[in-house]
Nucleic acid binder design. Structure first.
Lengths: 349, 349
DNA sequence: TAGAGCCTGGACAACGTTGTCAGATGCGGG
DNA sequence: CCCGCATCTGACAACGTTGTCCAGGCTCTA
């Protein structure tokens, strides 16, 4: 019986399904361990003939380098982590994709996970990624206290926050101009003659929501319009809550003639509610939607460029990794108002 | 000078930004290495007092276990890889999210990457994930030859293909009933009186595209309608190509009165073109779209459940990993026809 | 032809963790 | 008072790779 299984009797050998190692390749090719390593990594100093023999052994055994071991030795994993809210949200797909492209250009893999907007889960995920020794982290915060990352950052994990700033620590962040975008969007409605304008947004503890609300307030103030409490509604983005909020501000004692929607999940419900109204209510929405131009009327939006945000954040991340000792910076990307009809409707009292 | 940097003069020490190791924790707590390991992993056999001392040292040093080393020792990485086409495609967000949820339930992380529909890139990615020793792979094939995965599968990497079957190897796959869904969708148009029905789909080398085309042909045959070549167009999904295809079949010698759209990227362009026509053209589309119900008319679709597909695939993956030696299986998930108006328009000749 | 220098290849240790196993400690019973 | 047993702790090797360093063979020059 010449072929006994490798490592069959050793005590605590891991399994990996009994994968061949460099040692096996070396034995088969009749060369030293390090020579195999040299071939695998394309290092110089190997005769073509030797290289051929090694390559042959690699192919024959189906060898593939174990990157875990490599990482352990080298100290860099060539992977970055992305913690986002929910990949099912259309805003994050392009963002994630953009981060991935940049990572790929730097030879890194992307590991990502969703926090489901749960701060604990965000922390759990981020720390799990740190335990994997990702080189860097891009985080879309769910919570507002990120001091738990301090030791990691000190230990050299590059970190960039996206969409919302970090809480409790000083770190890079890349944001849209939420305040400016909302202000511009509301001003657009004002310019078309509206004075009673509603705002429906996400939960106020979320930075983007409060910034957009601030933009709304400022735009109203700029126009000299006193805001009534009944016109503003912040809370969960589930359809039931949003529907209720919209219906209330449309039917109160001083009903709104226009609505500013604070994010894309809110928008889809608002559109439904507005479609049911007898009078035409104007709408400007934060975040673009696919098909927004095909609706009747087309939806006027304040668009953020998710891909650009992702790209910017990832660039910044790798800039940190390339060793430039940068001071934490807050980068704000501009938004773009796209008029499509719904935001240009005149007030219908 | 009592505090010299650790490992400062050693030759080839990795950096990890000089992170503390279990050894450091052990030294500080005045215990043995293994005891720290025991505490970190919650293994029994440690006095509360000892545990307290160790925990204190861990907190003081900001220690976090290095999972790379752990993986190396244990042989399981508790991570699975997902290779998909393009995260920016709204179909893949929920799918990815579903896979992640299942992975999370099994204590595993998800690493994902996009192939950008490039077979080479798919292979590169899948093999890179294997080198990371992911425990399993979920692959949405871009290419149609997957023999490169044979050694990996043999070595124990669990593998499930999604959306399209594997090429050249026998492996699990989870698909929508593309044929049946398309057939039903087209039959729906026939039932509403259409006989000249067009089909616009993705490139024919893509399995879903050819299956859906087959469904179209079969439905037409079922109805006894001879299909004209000018009614079918397969190719890239970029707007220019689709627009040309749609306009041609709408203006030929026997113009279609209804269109069946083969996927969501095609659909958005088709909707635009149809909206420009003077006569009403019916439409049934494969894949649901957000807001499809708010368009005028609402878009009738054959919907696939991306989340269910992802969940099914991931379940299957972990079933493989749990050691059940399963025969490769092909799982087909049903589609659902959702009538919203566009598919119920009568023919307008 | 001898010596210097270069090039290739291989032995060895180290990365940080966990499994094994044996040693230390404390306690109760004979 | 000592032995045996149970409990807790730590030394050590191993996981698969890469960096260092040295040995041996070769070429080229003097």
């Amino acid at each position: 019986m010449p072929e006994t299984p490798r490592r069959a009797d050793r005590p605590s050998a891991p399994r990996y399904g009994n994968r061949p190692t460099m040692k096996d390749v070396a034995a088969r090719a009749g060369v030293g361990l390090k020579t195999v390593s040299r071939v695998v990594n394309g290092e110089p100093g190997v005769t073509p003939e030797t290289e051929r023999r090694v390559q042959e052994a690699i192919d024959a055994l189906g060898f593939r380098r174990n990157d875990s071991a490599r990482v352990l030795r080298k100290g860099r994993t060539a992977s970055v982590g992305l913690v986002l809210e929910d990949l099912a949200d259309p805003f994050y797909g392009p963002l994630s994709r953009a981060v991935e492209e940049v990572a790929r250009a730097h030879g890194a893999l992307l590991i990502n996970g969703s926090s489901a907007e749960d701060p604990d889960r965000e922390q759990e995920l981020a720390l799990a990624l740190c335990a994997r020794r990702v080189d860097g982290l891009v985080i879309i915060p769910a919570g507002d206290d990120h001091r738990y990352l301090e030791p990691e950052i000190k230990a050299g994990v590059a970190t960039v926050f996206v969409d919302r700033p970090a809480g409790g620590i000083d770190a890079d962040c890349v944001l849209s101009d939420n305040f400016g975008g909302a202000r511009q969007g509301v001003a657009h409605l004002v310019a078309h003659g509206h004075r009673r304008i509603g705002f429906i947004g996400d939960m106020p503890r979320i930075h983007t929501a409060s910034e957009r609300l601030r933009g709304y307030r400022t735009a109203m103030e700029d126009a000299g319009i006193p805001v009534e409490d009944a016109w503003m509604s912040l809370g969960a983005t589930d359809p039931a809550r949003v529907r209720r909020a919209a219906e209330e501000m449309l039917s109160g004692p001083s009903p709104v003639t226009a609505v500013f929607s604070g994010n894309n999940r809110v928008t889809v419900t608002v559109i439904r509610v507005l479609a049911e109204q007898s009078r035409r209510v104007a709408l400007v929405a934060f975040d673009d939607l696919e098909l927004a131009d095909l609706l009747q009327p087309g939806v006027t939006v304040v668009a953020q460029d998710a891909a650009a945000i992702g790209r910017t954040a990832a660039d910044r991340l790798f800039r940190q990794l390339d060793g430039a000792l940068l001071l934490p910076e807050r980068i704000e990307l501009p938004t773009r108002l796209i008029a499509r009809g719904s935001g240009e409707l005149p007030p219908a009292d």
